[in-house]
């Protein structure tokens, strides 16, 4: 089987899998980065959102060979050193998660938004986050958490 080298969370990782293997299984089952979740396998629920060169993407529909060696992957495990990204702190402050299963995807999706747009409007947040499902119904608190994180980091506040 071919050997692939991936740069994940700043570290080069090698993995030997069949071509065509989804990046999601590579991350979760081969490399043990299980914070990225399997929800649908067809890029419709958002539980597996990771960043590829800063862009939020669905790991479940990316094949391992589609990632070139220079590309940087970031998963929830690499979002911050100590779980203290402004969004992670805001998520705790808002007590957002219930079952928690979708939350890695939610946070990674939100992190990409704030990087591109540090002070989004409520409608911009809803629009950006609309593609990530939560079955427990934590959307109101996710919205609150993103607004909190944006406030805490807006230039006007700092």
């Amino acid at each position: 089987m071919p050997l692939y080298t991936l740069e994940i969370n700043g570290t080069k990782r090698e993995v030997e899998v069949a071509a065509g293997t989804s990046l999601l299984w590579v991350l979760r089952e081969h490399l043990g980065l299980t914070g990225t979740k399997y929800g649908c396998g067809i890029a419709i629920c958002g539980a597996c959102v990771i960043h590829v060169d800063g862009t939020p993407m669905r790991a479940c529909v990316l094949n391992v060979e589609a990632i070139s060696e220079g590309q940087r992957l970031k998963t929830i495990e690499g979002l911050s050193e100590a779980g203290d990204h402004p969004l992670q702190k805001a998520w705790i402050e808002a007590q957002a998660p219930q079952c928690g299963y979708c939350q890695s995807g939610q946070i990674m999706q939100a992190a990409a938004l704030l990087e591109a747009n540090p002070s989004p409007s409520r409608e911009e947040i809803k629009s950006h986050m609309n593609s990530v499902l939560c079955r427990c119904g934590t959307y109101l608190r996710i919205l609150k958490a993103i607004e909190l994180a944006a406030q805490n980091h807006s230039p006007a506040e700092s």
């Binding site: 979002l79 779980g83 992670q88 998520w91 705790i92 939350q103």
Partner: peptide, 18 residues
């Protein structure tokens, strides 16, 4: 605050699937 929420924001909360 709920005890298990910090683990649910950094990917470390363990589900059986993990």
């Amino acid at each position: 605050p709920r005890t298990e929420i910090p683990a649910k924001v950094d990917g470390s909360a363990q589900f059986a699937i993990d």
